[in-house]
């Protein structure tokens, strides 16, 4: 078990070191990076927005229930929705969803290329296949996922508004007051640190699972599943470590 862990970890580091190299031709890599940015950014926008609106809405409803009968003023709902969305829900839930959507597609795409000998074809041509296939995906992830997390945080807060103001839980003035109270810019910084770290984890782990796939369609399916499982576990572990480091 421990040996297996070190085997995979070593191979993961080797793959990353191979992927970090000077591009053969910048224009070709740029084209591939833009293609991946479009796939991640535009391709995931609707699902992220949809999930975020419900996250915000549920948070608002749950907190209004929790605060019922207490001395805490109702505008705290806006404050709590804002902070919990920015600090935790937007980066973590969005990246867990993206691990399923983007991560599994990366693992399948690269794994399929391995099985169809596309990666061998690139290697024979003298192209660094890890560099060409993995680096654009990681760069696209590192740029687009923080943007998606920003969208998620904004839509989440809007979701809280929609669940609490039109339904009469609190007034619009109270909700806006809540979202503008006790604002700590450091929380936004923490959100972006999480978004970048999670983006790196989900893109690199998924690429690793696809790049070393062997066998047939069953193994490809396994690689796709493993990419989601391992990315999710590592994201949650990293979430805890970042929380301890940045709030300690």
């Amino acid at each position: 078990m421990i040996l297996k862990f070190f085997h995979h970890f070593g191979r993961y580091i080797l793959m990353l070191s191979k992927a970090v190299a000077r591009p053969e031709k910048f224009s070709m890599y740029w084209k591939e990076t833009v293609r991946q940015m479009y796939n991640i950014g535009i391709g995931s926008l609707i699902i992220i927005a949809l999930i975020s609106i419900f996250i915000g809405a549920v948070t608002a409803v749950q907190f209004s229930y929790q605060l019922g009968g207490t001395m805490i003023p109702p505008y705290y709902i806006g404050y709590i929705v804002r902070d919990i969305t920015i600090i935790e829900l937007a980066p973590t839930i969005s990246c867990l969803v993206l691990a399923g959507k983007v991560g599994s597609s990366f693992a399948s795409e690269i794994g399929g290329m391995r099985q169809k000998e596309h990666i061998d074809a690139l290697d024979v041509m003298g192209l660094n296949s890890a560099n060409y296939l993995i680096t654009p995906k990681i760069i696209a992830g590192l740029t687009m996922i923080p943007i998606l997390v920003t969208v998620s945080a904004f839509v989440g807060i809007m979701g809280g508004y929609l669940a609490s103001v039109p339904t009469g839980i609190i007034t619009e003035e109270e909700y806006v007051r809540g979202t503008r109270s006790f604002f700590e810019p450091f929380n936004v910084y923490m959100m972006y640190v999480k978004a970048v770290v999670f983006a790196f984890i989900l893109t690199s782990v998924s690429c690793y699972q696809g790049y070393y796939v062997t066998g047939g369609s069953i193994e490809l399916g396994k690689a796709s599943t493993n990419s989601v499982v391992f990315s999710s576990i590592l994201i949650l572990l990293a979430d805890y470590i970042i929380a301890v480091i940045l709030t300690g």
Binding site: E24, K25, S27, E117, D120, M125
Partner: peptide, 24 residues
Amino acid sequence: LFQSSALFDSMTVNENIGFPLNMF
């Protein structure tokens, strides 16, 4: 020439053949 031809599915015939020229 690979057993499976190893042509890139997302590229046209023109793009497949032009790939090494574009890259190198």
